[in-house]
Design a protein around this nucleic acid. Structure first.
Lengths: 159, 159
DNA sequence: TGTTTTTTTTGCATTATCTTTAATAAATAA
DNA sequence: TTATTTATTAAAGATAATGCAAAAAAAACA
């Protein structure tokens, strides 16, 4: 893959698209004082380079009846069971994120549930997976920060 | 706010937009055998109802030089310092997510860094915040799951 | 049940946006 | 410098979004 060097214009395009993926390229062009064709070409290149992997909606899960977030740390009996357990975990749709980690836990995941009872059911499902020794749950009382824009600004200012 | 009942058509529209926010409404209309006007009206309603909060890009952070993910649990000296500490945390752009939690930690956050050294610097910054008693870090070796589509399918099948 | 009222969908017209193209300009290499 | 590559542009044609009035469907009511 070709080395890819992002310049200021790329940054600004990304910046605007991160905030709203459906903003018209013509609007981006106007703000950056370039042509819409350039925006188009640049975005296509960013996609081809794999820097833009896709786009997605930000949904209000509360309004969809899912007001519960928990993080669950998983201890395994043997590290060699990691793959097997991850496969089982992947079958539970309420687990939206999972990482293999070093530190306290072997696997670390994020759970979205409807309510406390539902969360309990999910955590029990995890505990029941063969190879899982025990789990430790952190319940989110409030999602205080969730923002990738600030990170992007740092990335852009870096180089 | 008016109670909002999502039907099958709304689900399918959301489903397609979750996967690609820039898919033309005309394409959605064709697939669902409805008019583009209907798609337009429905999406507008979902936005007005706050179910769609926005949209964002999925970026390849590795390619942007940020290949390091860690989760950091924070212990506070006093719970009453939560707000103050969160404000300090909010000033660190490399912390992309933060939750107030029950369980082991008072605050729980996600860190994106360039590399180990950078991560260390960030964690030290957290440790240096007034009111933070200590932190516990889990380093991600691999992000194995990160997928909201499966959750959405469950939500849709629920009701 | 039929009737009224409200909501939703549709088709079309208008406007806006995307996307390609060929020409031009800029950057890079020889 | 000159050749070559790469990027940008304006313009044009293709495609899509948006608004609206009419029709259809659904809901409310008697």
């Amino acid at each position: 893959m070709a080395k890819f060097r992002l310049d200021e214009v790329d940054h600004q395009i990304l910046d605007m698209l991160i905030e709203n993926t459906r903003i018209p390229f013509t609007d981006i062009a106007k703000k950056l004082l370039i042509s819409a064709g350039t925006v188009h070409v640049r975005v296509k290149k960013l996609e081809e380079a794999g820097i833009i992997r896709g786009s997605s909606l930000t949904l209000d899960y509360q309004k969809l009846g899912y007001s519960f977030i928990a993080y669950v740390g998983i201890f395994l009996e043997k590290t060699s069971q990691t793959k097997f357990v991850l496969n089982r975990i992947h079958e539970i749709p309420y687990i939206t994120v999972a990482h293999i980690t070093t530190g306290k836990f072997n696997i670390f995941c994020k759970v979205r549930a409807k309510n406390t009872k539902h969360a309990k059911d999910i955590i029990f499902m995890i505990d029941d997976i063969e190879g899982v020794s025990r789990t430790e749950t952190m319940i989110s009382l409030e999602e205080s920060i969730n923002d990738k824009n600030r990170l992007m600004h740092s990335i852009f200012n870096d180089l």
